[in-house]
Design a protein around this nucleic acid. Structure first.
Lengths: 232, 232
DNA sequence: TCTACGTATAACGTATACGATCTTAAAGAA
DNA sequence: TTCTTTAAGATCGTATACGTTATACGTAGA
């Protein structure tokens, strides 16, 4: 059945619909903190920036509203949603539960190859000087560890939670570079060691503590720096 | 500032945007199982049924896609999303974690009034002959118990998980009415008793077991009745 | 009869258009 | 001056319109 057609690379332009592409781009911008909380998302402006009409823009915004990243007010459009410190605390608490579960499941079954991969990611993280990439490297390290749990939905839920708080974590990391980083990396190493021992209970409890610690640090930082704990 | 105008009830016909109303209606129909898995959701048909154009319909469908209740194929439109038994198992596992957390938090701080309210809901549930309302009554009982946890986001996450699996739970309940119901109600009573004792650990572990048990029963039922474990 | 191709029809995704609502700022009243 | 009113402009939410893509069916050839 081999033929010259097998060699043809189909360009497959337009892999995603316009609304999906816009949702992706806006999500990235919000998650990375390029769009600040409360910023108004004017449909016509976004439309012309992407060279499309408002229709796919609105569909993208509706999707992001469902994801909790933007919020609509009737006849007043969409703004980038923000989280109060209480809400962030809740999300980190839920993350701790889900990540501990994923860690416990994965630690019992992680392969040597995956372990090596996680080691590699952690080394990249430690070596990285680019603070802008820390969020991504941190995610790659943890998600690699969770991969052998073989729980795609659990992983997706964790990722969704990650996206909601990522901007706040970034803001904190940008401040406390040398203060917090060694502790974070010690925790990472301890988690990796627990996985290497195939110790599910240790992996789970260290992961839970790691996330809760990050959450507590984050909430304290926000309560200190936000004048009186508002959100919007 | 008082005037006769204050007494006028504004009809407030357009309380929600068209797309939000349609999203609500479609979500209810999917969650209640009125729209079967795989059913095609034709935009023009839905639009004419609601007396609107396709635009708000598409926005509603995009929102439901983000919620995981429908799925789009490019240029082929939307269908009601389905879950494999593995996916249902994952969701129930996550529910068990989150509901146990909510139960543990709430049991420590539940008020007498709330406890009475939960007792009332459970009595309604036990007395109800209308199997169609069981899903709602079950939710009301559990969410009443969780209310004093004062964790709105945790509660919303639990609700979202509930919505994803509700149709499958319903399908099961419709079958095994007399077999499973006494056990379920015994578990409900035990949970309520744990709350009454303000025993967070018992409330959490009983709730976890309750959800996991429902999940296991559900998955077993589906594996027996779905010819060879497919989804869609 | 069966397979491959071509055309028709239906549905999708998006652009354009338009009334409705909100915002802003100027004009007028206190 | 300061507060209220009002009119203009901007932005939203949705209807209509249109090109594009998938599916179904009929037709030609083996």
């Amino acid at each position: 059945m081999a033929s010259a057609l097998d060699q043809l690379e189909v360009p497959r332009v337009m892999r995603l619909s316009a609304s999906d592409q816009i949702a992706e781009a806006l999500r990235d911008a919000i998650v990375e903190g390029q769009l600040a909380t409360g910023e108004v998302l004017r449909q016509d402006e976004i439309a012309s920036r992407f060279h499309v009409s408002k229709i796919p823009v609105r569909e993208a915004l509706k999707r992001l509203e469902a994801e909790g990243l933007v919020s609509f007010s009737k006849n007043r459009g969409a703004v980038v949603a923000g989280l109060s410190s209480a809400e962030i605390s809740e999300y980190m608490d839920i993350r701790a539960l889900l990540e501990a579960r994923a860690a416990g499941l994965a630690a019992a079954r992680i392969t040597d190859e995956r372990l090596a991969e996680a080691r590699q990611k952690l080394a990249e993280f430690v070596a990285s000087q680019n603070t802008g990439r820390w969020g991504e490297l941190n995610w790659q390290f943890h998600s690699t560890l969770y991969a052998d749990a073989d729980r795609p939905i659990l992983l997706a839920e964790i990722r969704a939670l990650y996206d909601k708080v990522e901007r706040y974590v970034r803001a904190l990391l940008a401040m406390t570079t040398q203060t917090e980083m060694p502790k974070t990396q010690r925790e990472h190493q301890a988690i990796l060691d627990a996985f290497a021992r195939r110790d599910p209970d240790a992996a789970a409890s260290l992961t839970r503590a790691h996330v809760l610690d990050a959450g507590a640090t984050l909430v304290q930082y926000l309560n200190d720096h936000r004048h009186h704990g508002g959100n919007t």
